[in-house]
């Protein structure tokens, strides 16, 4: 049996699970609730987002979360009976995660 190339996508999935669990809820509360409810000044959040560290933080959060979600969706569908389509699903979901990551990089880092 050949060694699997799964470590590449699994390490992105594992890292994505960690950053999503630790930082995604906080980010949603800040952007989705704290600003609309007036607890936080939108201008100040805007400054944080424009800081180079804020941009890198958002890029890492978005890109890794996308790979985490893609991996999870792929294996959920495989376990639901689409085992034969595993490679096609991998192409679809990791491709979407790559495109989303490139879009995030373009918006945040250029």
């Amino acid at each position: 049996m050949a060694r699997s190339n799964e470590p590449i996508v699994w390490s992105l999935f594992a890292a994505g699970g960690m950053v999503a669990a630790l930082f995604l809820p906080v980010t949603v509360v800040l952007i989705g609730f704290a600003v609309p409810l007036g607890w936080l000044d939108a201008e100040r959040l805007w400054e944080v987002v424009h800081h180079p560290l804020g941009r890198i933080f958002l890029f890492v959060l978005i890109a890794l979360s996308l790979f985490h979600a893609g991996h999870r969706l792929r294996f959920t569908l495989v376990d639901m009976g689409l085992r034969g389509a595993s490679h096609a699903l991998a192409g679809l979901f990791y491709g979407a995660a790559t495109l989303g990551s490139l879009l995030a990089a373009w918006l945040l880092l250029t």
Partner: peptide, 9 residues
């Protein structure tokens, strides 16, 4: 075997 597609992955 352990690190193949049929193993831990």
């Amino acid at each position: 075997v352990l690190q193949s597609d049929h193993g831990v992955w």
